[in-house]
Design a protein around this nucleic acid. Structure first.
Length: 273
DNA sequence: CATCAGGCGAGAC
DNA sequence: GTCTCGCCTGAT
């Protein structure tokens, strides 16, 4: 068990923000609890107010989860940098101030956000769980929980189109089949994407079948942690049209616009209006 | 029954 | 380069 105290950190907000499809809210008394599969491990986190309890060793927290949850970044500073005259953005950030931009697995994000297109979060989770159960390695955690690794490029490349359609992926089945084959054959070196800047990494990702501008931006933000990426989906476009008819002030928020995108997205999705 | 969900690829121009 | 159109599936 690792106990830490942090304002600007909410496991439920992170869970609901829709960047991670393998994080689930659980029943809990006297606080919030989520389970998570990442880094090939299963973990639970308990939170009560500013008190957060990671169910792992200190070594594991320091080596993996601290970085995964972006604990080194001061989100209060980002929020403090928001233009006080921008009432919408100020409200959105106050509403979602516990959100973090996670550092998730690159391959998992590529497939997850291909699945996400023209799809709703509930079905996205179902599709991904199905892919993991059918093509991921089965594991058992320390507390006896059965879970599945995210399928490897090889496992998905070996799945037939029919198999993928059977996972209710619809027309995205072909995209996943082609992208998995492409990666498994070594046509793209995913490792080198970490060395590129946002624009360079995005250009490479756009070569993948089923990856367009929006999906590429999500991968850049949630896997490569390019916080200057600003994914534009239907929610964001709706808000930009209504709240920023003169254009969103990207120049003010050069290297944190991706964080702001998450505040806006979450506020539009969950906020009471 | 129509519409939409965190878009994208293919083809027309 | 920009625009339109069709697309699996399920929830509302």
């Amino acid at each position: 068990m690792v106990r830490i105290t942090s304002s600007n950190f909410s496991i439920t907000q992170i869970c609901q923000s829709g960047q991670c499809f393998r994080m689930n809210e659980m029943e809990a008394q006297g606080g919030q609890r989520v389970s998570l599969v990442a880094h090939g491990r299963y973990m639970e986190i308990l939170q009560s107010g500013d008190d957060i309890c990671f169910d792992c060793t200190q070594e594991e927290y320091d080596a993996l989860w601290k970085h995964y949850f972006d604990m080194e970044t001061d989100y209060a500073e980002i929020i403090a940098g928001i233009d006080a005259d921008d009432q919408y953005l100020t409200s959105a950030a106050a509403f979602g101030n516990g959100i973090r931009i996670l550092r998730q697995d690159l391959w998992e994000m590529i497939i997850s956000f291909i699945v996400s297109q023209q799809n709703n979060i509930k079905r996205i989770r179902r599709c991904i769980n199905l892919l993991c159960e059918r093509y991921g390695e089965k594991r058992v955690s320390g507390n006896g929980t059965v879970y599945y690794d995210f399928p490897t490029p090889q496992a998905l490349a070996n799945a037939t189109l029919e198999d993928l359609y059977a996972c209710n992926l619809g027309y995205r089945s072909r995209y996943i089949h082609e992208t998995a084959s492409y990666v498994w054959q070594g046509c793209i070196d995913l490792g080198k994407l970490y060395e590129l800047d946002y624009v360079g990494a995005k250009d490479e990702l756009l070569k993948l079948c089923g990856v367009g501008t929006k999906v590429a931006d999500c991968i850049c933000l949630f896997a490569l942690h390019k916080t200057d990426a600003f994914p534009r989906d239907t929610h964001i476009n709706k808000v930009l049209t209504a709240q920023y008819p003169g254009g969103f002030p990207f120049d003010k928020y050069a290297d944190c616009s991706g964080v702001l995108q998450q505040y806006i997205f979450y506020y539009d999705l969950m906020g009471v209006r």
